[in-house]
Design a protein around this nucleic acid. Structure first.
Lengths: 221, 221, 221, 221
DNA sequence: TATGAATGAGACTTCATTCAT
DNA sequence: AATGAATGAAGTCTCATTCAT
């Protein structure tokens, strides 16, 4: 298949030299996002993508070698848009719960904003090694950020020392993404605020963090 | 949703009347499980299934109309094998944590025992409405069991009353299944005991349950 | 294919020796008529015929070798039912027009009573040599009867001597059958009396026969 | 029914944009006419059509979706060729019989010139709704022309007023087409002149038109 | 660069017919 | 005589990819 350079850099073909070429390439990418979102990966046909881009069938192959390749290129863009999710936020909220809540909100918001393509990403990850790896890296970045936070909180004495940070980070971020997926599929209009609070509560509890009184929802029932 | 008749009769077509026919059908099912596990759904060819069953090409169609249909029939069998996961266990462990731990272990064990086909199920669920529904039903049964338990524990005063049981049950069972999936894909030989304990700890904490001292792992690091 | 003995006798397999066998055979024939009428020849499947007869798939082949064979057997029965159409009627109506009218009525009635299978016969005749021959024979018998009548009428001085009897008989019986077909397909409930009278009028005129005043419809418009 | 755009554009898919494409499409149409004429509709295989056109298997599907579709496209061309049959002729022959004779001759000539494909058309019409409709439209145009003529002749006092024009037109054109079909199948080399005269005589008589003495064949026998 | 035509491997299905019980 | 399972040839259709213009 495609060959990878070390680390996270992939061999990518250079962008087209002419402006016209770059426009065509971008049109294909835009069209692809639309078509994948609508039809899923398996059912998307290259013809449809070319049609949607207003390009001839054969033009596709000037820019991309295969359906997989354009999908990966698409994901690169998407991953950039997801950066806020896993990048250490610059702001310095001191309260751990507040930070969790913010992170979870951002995650859910981003997921929802990109729902259809996120779902397809999920699908393709199960079918394609390369895409799986991209997802894993993206997941991992988020998980590593959480893992580092857990370690910090444990050394602060803020978090339950019995927790194994790596496992917990993986499990909790998994909980989040799985939740986002399930609810997107079932009830695309779920109430984001409530969901973010409940999930944050579960996280905080799970890690043994203290939840500020003003955030503890009214007792149930 | 789907209603089952008693015993081995399922809705959909009746089993073949002769023993020979039933043997053939079963051979196809066994072959299908093998082929799906090996090739995934999309790459599995009906020809391969027939071949693996030692049957002629066209014989497949005497018993199943399509790849999807045999896959669903296969899942029906699998779901029966998963019953212990979501059926209320008869035993009367009184300690909530103990019960969580047991449930999580059973889940992980079952998942691992059926790893390849579980992974394919996960994949197909994203591609196919009918299969997605089967998965959802299976998930829901487990989640409902957990939800009932949370409600009980909240009324006991054992669990955090701020937790919304339905959301929590969905999130926590999702965490479990996502974890099982991720680890199966990455490290099929992960240590099941440790994983079960860590996950149970997270669950217990998340719900506000007390963890018996003998189960709290040694402090980290 | 099947071998024919001389003349109109065909080699036919003997009827089954046991009563049960004969019943099965007949059930298949009845079922075939129904299925052919419903689905046409090309779309009728042997399975369907067997099913409709309440017989097992394989039983069909004990009695018939192929779809064609059962169709021909079916036509044999049908042709018997059509005998009144082409057999010289015993009664001695003296008036030529009266005899035409009667013949045409009988034809249309018979056609209509057997519409669906007649239409299929028409279809199969275009596809299958053997069936075409049966139809031709059936047509020819009718045409020959008409031809003989024309000759008689011409020697009587009742019919236009310029008419070539063979061509006319073929053309006019063709007109009749084509009319029956067209109207069956378009307006299965066409008014038979009116049609018979108009057609007879055309025949009589064409042949130069005198139409009795009481049969001449009121002038048009 | 179906509306045609001007010139060679038909409803349904637009013609290929490039000359090469149009050549390929036409090659397939030509090949199809040949294959259908040789094998009939049911036995014609798409593969054979592609082969006969010197095209690859899959190329067929760039231009036509199915065997039926190409057959219909073929008929559209054929119907254009049949136009002289049903279009009111410009010439002003005053004698009704002369006009009948000319119309019948044109019909028989055209039928004979396109014999093989006409026969297949006849066959397919019995199998396929769409084709049946095309045939009906074509028939109807001819019948309507005759119907108008009958009405005219009746108001002239030239034709038998007892005739119902619509029925007669349908019956007589049916006679013609049936005759053409029967004789094409049986004796492809029938004598066209004689047939045309006999048929015209029958028509003229049937309608009560006077036949010019020079056209009345010598008395029979 | 762009276009759209051409290719052909590959999978799916159907169903008449044969066979074992 | 009857049953229903098994067979496999035959044909359809799709679509990623290559090519000629």
């Amino acid at each position: 298949m495609a060959l990878y350079a070390r680390g996270s850099d992939r061999v990518t073909r250079p962008l087209p030299p002419t402006a016209r070429g770059r426009r065509s390439r971008q049109a294909l990418l835009d069209a692809a996002r639309e078509v994948f979102a609508r039809d899923g990966f398996a059912d998307a046909r290259i013809t449809d993508i070319a049609d949607a881009a207003g390009a001839a069938h054969g033009s596709f192959y000037r820019y991309f070698d295969s359906k997989e390749e354009i999908f990966v290129a698409l994901l690169r863009d998407l991953i950039d848009e997801l950066r806020p999710v896993w990048s250490e936020s610059a702001d310095e909220l001191t309260d751990p719960y507040e930070r969790l809540l913010r992170a979870n909100r951002v995650y859910l918001e981003t997921y929802r904003a990109n729902q259809p393509i996120m779902i397809v990403w999920e699908q393709v990850a199960t079918l394609n090694e390369h895409v799986e790896q991209l997802r894993r890296e993206s997941n991992d970045k988020f998980a590593e950020r959480i893992e580092r936070a857990i370690v910090r909180w444990q050394s602060d004495g803020t978090a339950d020392p019995a927790i194994e940070p790596k496992t917990a980070a993986s499990a909790l971020t998994g909980m989040l993404s799985n939740f986002a997926y399930r609810w997107s599929v079932r009830e695309p209009d779920f109430d984001l605020d409530t969901a973010a609070e409940q999930l944050s509560l579960l996280w905080a509890n799970a890690l043994g963090l203290r939840v500020p009184a003003n955030h503890a929802p009214a007792p149930n029932r």
